[in-house]
Amino acid sequence: MKASDLGAGLALCTLNLSRTNGPVLWISAHAEDVWAPGLHALGLRADRLLQASYRQLADGLWTMEEALRSPASGAAVLQTDRLDMTASRRLQLAAEGSTRVGLLLRNFAEHGPSSAASR
């Protein structure tokens, strides 16, 4: 995978998020690497961003579900490189049950199975 692919996905994500309201939970293995000023320039204000770093993917998935179900968050982004069909389906169900935007940012070349509504 080329680095430019991730950048393009990131930009697309951010443009999507800039149209939502409320805090955005950015869940990633290294969330502190997300460069807030850059997202700010793309329209996602820095005071809306919350960065959550997970060690194990299970924690990240759990946080994503919590964020999708909570009335407080406006949107949630999960950045991961491995996701099986079950987890993907759970997230899709959580997202369908709420009015919030949930985005998956997957940085691996061979696309595994996913049950996301749009990809």
Partner: peptide, 14 residues
Amino acid sequence: LLDRTRQRIPISRP
């Protein structure tokens, strides 16, 4: 939401 999630993973704001 933060209280709950922070039991498992660290969260910060930039």
